[in-house]
Write a protein that binds this DNA or RNA. Structure first.
Length: 214
DNA sequence: AAATCCAGCAACCGCAGTTGC
DNA sequence: TGCAACTGCGGTTGCTGGATT
């Protein structure tokens, strides 16, 4: 009740995006910047709901997306961050420049889970699975360990649990790289707290050409 | 060569949190 | 202060292409 649906389903396109729709969305965002998703479709001449536009932009059209195979290093980072944060895909994505939460989530479900199982590690708990292993009480067992779990160090001894961290990397952390690459992304996405700010409020600023590295 | 199965990815759905009025 | 609007997140679904039988 109370809340209106995010869009008029009867008057919006659904399913795969066409090239024309992509072009409209890109052109609009280049001209007006991200944000104001609710009004964007109408303004851009798209028959999509704002959510759909946002998703398409973030997961597919953003110019700073890497796309392509994950490297071994990225694999390991994802595993470590997942051990620390659980299914906080957006936070994990924040540590991997050019990767999106959806992409990482998919990659986790399709590749990494299997990889961990192959190593004899339970992907949810990050605990070794011993033969009959009680480590997997089923998916009903709730969220993966949050950072506060006392046994964390046992499970991931090489992890730096000081979440003020961004980990013990000596080289610039991905987030630093991110911040350097995109000053606008700065503090709002601080991964330094286990529970990052929910959002950086939408700012309708025009993107500057060349702001993103290709 | 055709049919079936499976894996991967893109997109949707519903909910929770935040903000502004 | 409470409520409604809006955004963002995580889980899930469905489609597509490749591999296998």
């Amino acid at each position: 009740m109370g809340r209106s649906p995010c869009c008029e389903k009867a008057h919006t396109n659904r399913g795969a995006w066409t090239k024309e729709e992509d072009q409209l969305l890109i052109a609009y965002i280049k001209a007006h910047g991200e944000g104001c998703w609710r009004s964007l479709p109408k303004a851009a001449g798209l028959l999509r709901c704002g959510k759909s536009c946002r998703l398409r932009w973030i997961n597919y059209l953003r110019p700073d997306l890497k796309r392509g195979n994950f490297t071994e290093e990225e694999d390991e980072l994802i595993i470590k961050f997942h051990g620390l944060l659980g299914n906080k895909w957006s936070v994990i994505a924040g540590q991997l420049p050019g990767r999106t939460d959806n992409e990482i989530k998919n990659y986790w479900n399709t590749h990494i889970k299997r990889k961990l199982v192959g190593r004899g590690i339970d992907p949810q708990t990050h605990l070794p699975v011993h033969g009959g292993g009680g480590a997997t009480p089923g998916k009903a067992s709730k969220p993966p360990p949050s950072a506060a779990s006392p046994s964390e160090t046992e499970r991931c001894p090489d992890l730096n649990l000081d979440l003020s961290m961004s980990l013990s990397f000596s080289s610039p952390t991905p987030s630093e790289v991110f911040a350097a690459a995109d000053p606008a992304a700065d503090a709002t996405s601080s991964p330094t707290s286990a529970v990052p700010p929910r959002r950086a409020h939408a700012i309708c600023l025009p993107l500057e050409e060349g702001q993103h590295t290709h």
